[in-house]
Amino acid sequence: MTKKDILNVILLLTITFTLTAQKANMDTLYFKFNKKYIKRGEVNKNQYYLKDKSNEGDLFFIKRSILDNLKPKEVLCFKKFIRSSKYYNFSKKKNQRLDGYRLWEYLDKYIIFFILNIDGRHVYEEVKINYVIE
């Protein structure tokens, strides 16, 4: 192995460890799943959509994994979280109140779990927020 190869391996390992450390340090948000506010996709059952619509694009969540036995410190109401934030505007037209892009920018920095109650037990679905411009 040449010195150049060794330096490339060291650089690759450094980048890998840095990216892993950044992901490990992400904060986690837990939201109680509200069937009236969050709807499962009709075509793709691994997608969730909000009752509130975004103004210029489509905001949705994709299920990534299912976990059990998590111990969240705080569980938030997703609808209250959205409607009390700067990403929701009560003065706009009824169908264009949510600033989906800015909400996506904010929540994309977090690990997000929806907490569902299935057969009397809590199920934690890790989801990833997505935004598509129409």
Rank of each mutant, 00 (worst) to 15 (best):
T2A: 01
K4S: 10
I6K: 13
I6L: 13
I6Y: 11
L7F: 13
V9S: 12
L11I: 11
L11A: 09
T14H: 14
F17N: 07
T20I: 06
A21N: 07
Q22E: 04
Q22H: 04
K23E: 07
K23I: 05
A24D: 08
N25C: 03
T28I: 15
T28N: 02
L29I: 04
L29F: 09
F31V: 00
F31M: 02
N34D: 15
K35L: 12
K35N: 15
Y37T: 03
K39M: 15
R40P: 14
R40K: 15
E42N: 15
E42C: 10
V43N: 15
N46P: 00
N46E: 14
Q47C: 13
Y48D: 04
D52H: 04
D52S: 15
D52M: 07
S54E: 03
N55F: 14
N55P: 13
E56G: 09
E56C: 12
G57M: 07
G57D: 03
F60P: 00
F61T: 01
I62C: 09
I62K: 13
I62S: 09
K63H: 07
K63N: 12
R64F: 09
S65W: 03
S65Q: 12
S65H: 10
I66Y: 11
D68V: 10
D68S: 12
K71D: 13
K71F: 07
L76F: 09
C77Q: 09
K79S: 14
K80W: 05
K80G: 11
F81Y: 14
I82T: 00
I82W: 00
R83E: 12
R83M: 04
S84E: 08
S85T: 00
S85L: 06
K86I: 05
K86A: 05
Y87K: 00
Y88T: 04
Y88F: 13
Y88P: 02
Y88R: 03
Y88K: 04
S91H: 08
K92G: 07
K92F: 11
K94C: 04
K94N: 07
N95P: 03
N95D: 11
N95Y: 09
Q96E: 09
R97D: 07
D99V: 02
Y101W: 06
R102G: 03
L103V: 02
L103C: 00
W104T: 09
E105I: 03
Y106K: 03
Y106E: 04
L107W: 02
F114Q: 01
F114T: 02
D119T: 11
G120W: 02
G120Q: 08
R121E: 12
H122K: 11
H122W: 08
H122M: 11
V127M: 02
I129K: 05
I129M: 07
I129W: 10
Y131R: 01
V132F: 12
E134H: 14
